[in-house]
Amino acid sequence: MKGFAMDLPTPKLDEVCTLYVELDVIREMGAGRAGHRRIIPIVGGTVTGARLAGRILNLGADWQTIFAGGLAELDTRYAVETDDGAIIEIINYGFRHGPEEVLAAVARGEEVDPTAYYMRTHARLETGDERYDWVNRTLFVGVGARFQQAVQVTLYALT
């Protein structure tokens, strides 16, 4: 068709950082409109990587919905303070699901191979600090793992 590009670029993923997110005790809300609701406070952690490094601030939470069949909808909002003093907001949305026995082991706080279940996110980062303005114009995806009182997510820039 005239006027349409035939050879679009193939997106690539560039690793940006790994988030080690420390969690407080789960606050159970009970059954909601779509599933079981719970809030998991985010109380700290670290950010390591070549493009972003710093600490996760003691604020924010993961507002989860657990659907029939075990699908967890992850909906987080928190902030990072970089080693050089910038504040970056992170809004991370995604899904965690897998075989029932694997999810039960994760729920018990057991160490589970992260390849045994699916935990993927897409993240929006935002800052007013000019040194990190690139995060305002970049799409991010993440791969994660859940531990007893923590989550690990590696973020990749979609380029």
Rank of each mutant, 00 (worst) to 15 (best):
R77V: 14
A105Y: 02
Y78Q: 06
L103A: 03
L125P: 01
V141T: 07
A79F: 12
E73S: 11
Y78C: 07
A116G: 02
A107Q: 12
V43P: 02
R131Q: 04
R55E: 10
E81I: 14
T65C: 04
N58V: 05
A68S: 13
V43Q: 00
A68H: 13
A145K: 15
L52C: 11
A105S: 05
Y117Q: 07
R131W: 05
L52P: 10
A107N: 09
R131A: 08
D84H: 10
G109E: 00
G144T: 11
V80C: 02
G45Y: 07
G142C: 08
Y78E: 02
P99E: 12
R77W: 13
G94K: 06
A72Q: 13
V102L: 03
A107E: 11
V143W: 04
H97D: 05
N92M: 07
W63S: 09
V141D: 00
I88C: 04
T127Q: 01
A68F: 11
G98R: 12
G85F: 11
E81P: 09
I87L: 09
G44Q: 06
T46D: 04
I87N: 01
L74K: 09
A116P: 05
D62V: 14
A123G: 10
Y117P: 06
G85E: 03
D62H: 08
V106S: 03
A145R: 15
R146G: 02
T121R: 07
L74M: 15
V112M: 02
D84C: 08
L57W: 03
A72L: 15
L103G: 01
N136L: 08
E100A: 12
D133W: 07
V102R: 06
F140N: 07
E111G: 08
G49M: 09
T115P: 00
R51I: 09
T127H: 03
Y117E: 04
V106M: 04
L71P: 04
P99F: 11
Y132A: 07
G98A: 05
D75R: 11
G94A: 10
H122A: 14
I88F: 06
T48F: 04
F95Q: 11
T46G: 04
V102G: 01
L103Q: 06
A79D: 08
P114E: 02
W63F: 14
A107T: 13
